[in-house]
Computed example of a mutant assay.
Amino acid sequence: MKLQRNGRSKALAIGAMALVSSLSLAACGSDDNTSSSTATGSAGASSSAAQIACGKGGQLLAAGSTAQTNAIDVWKAAYGAACSGSTITYGGGGSGAGVQQFNQGKVSFAGSDSALKPAEVDASKAVCKTGQGINLPMVGGLISIVFNVDGVDKLVLDGPTVAKIFDSQITKWNDPAIAALNPGVTLPAADIQAIHRSDDSGTTANLTGYLAKASAGAWTYPASKTWAGKGGQSANGSAGVSAQVKQVKNSISYAELSYAQTNNLKSASIATGASKPVEATAANAATTFAKAKIAGTGSDLALSLDYATKEEGAYPLVLVTYEIVCDKGNKADTVDTLKSFLTYTISDAGQQAIGAKGYVPLPKELTTKVQAVIPTLA
């Protein structure tokens, strides 16, 4: 199931960039990023609705990743406009909470920004009576290092510096390590207010995965959903940390790009070893996704992402949100609607719709693989 190199990688890159280039034509969904259970259909939602094959109806319960909440809102609006007999209810709570609820049989699918661990797969077999939980990549995104620093509009950071900031080894904005990355920028002699997630978070898992690979040993903790760095403040969910950065002067945190855009937060560029720092844009994240490899087996499509990439224009801090479902043993009364909803979300229309909200449409070769698995769910 691994993606082959050369021709297939080139095809991935072309597919990813083609989707990203179409974002300006794909502004589906409302500009309202609130997470209400009911959504009114906009012109974009109505357009997408025409392409949706509805299931048998009923209520579909899901929970998990807050990074994908804005994407789910867009999809709910379009799906609800097409399928009036179906209700999609998504509760955030973070990736850890979502996986826990899935393995307790409380939701039909969970959103997680990190793939299931072996122990979580084993636990899923009690719920997926004739199968097990699998990872279906659905939402591509990037993690912005968001900041609110007096007098600073643009900021460059690298892996070691980000690690030291979030582990309280660098505590002042005018620290020589930050100054060296930002020549000509007047940095205040102010204390850094570092903010991390308080809940178990797939976004945290991806950030710490990046730090473990790209910090030259400055980050001494393993990649994990649970925050391990020293010091700092904490807030719940992507919305929580974003709101804190917006309110607190001289602060820094990490959040999915959609939340950075919604809150009008500035995002740092990342020095990767390429010829110039890489900006936090969907196009630059797409370059990284184009080189992703499938690490899962069978119908499990967990990805291996290269956090340490030094390729020109490749933004390293990416994440993918998986929808966690049973390959076999899904709830009989909702499996039809589950398959219908996921078929829409992984479609070109579904992927392009969330591209307008700061997400990264997944490469065509990857979406084709997901589209092949969904009809086999039972």
Rank of each mutant, 00 (worst) to 15 (best):
V360T: 14
A216Y: 03
E365H: 06
G105P: 09
S299Q: 13
I88G: 01
A189Y: 02
A274S: 15
P118H: 06
G133M: 02
M138V: 15
Q100F: 08
W173R: 03
Q244S: 12
E311F: 00
V156H: 12
I178F: 04
A285N: 14
A62P: 05
Q104D: 12
G296L: 01
N33Y: 13
A82I: 09
P363G: 05
T309N: 01
T337S: 12
I294Q: 10
S238E: 15
L319F: 02
W173L: 01
F147T: 07
A283Q: 13
V107T: 08
A119E: 14
T171W: 00
M138I: 15
Q233W: 07
V241K: 00
T345G: 09
L303F: 09
D200G: 08
Q233F: 07
N103K: 08
S37A: 12
T34D: 12
D153G: 15
T309V: 05
A119L: 11
A268P: 09
A49S: 13
G7C: 07
I270A: 04
P277K: 06
K117Y: 06
T343Y: 00
Q59M: 14
S242C: 01
Q104F: 04
R197N: 09
S267F: 04
V74S: 06
A283Y: 05
S108R: 04
E365Q: 15
V20S: 08
L3N: 08
T208C: 08
L60M: 11
A45N: 14
S24Y: 13
L338W: 04
P137K: 00
L136H: 01
L317W: 03
K291H: 11
S340P: 09
V156E: 13
A179C: 02
E256S: 12
A286Y: 11
S224H: 01
A308R: 05
T288P: 10
I170G: 01
G209M: 11
A179I: 02
T288S: 15
Y90D: 14
S269G: 10
A190Y: 00
L61F: 04
P160C: 08
A282T: 15
V325R: 00
K225T: 11
A50Y: 02
W173G: 00
T334W: 02
L155K: 02
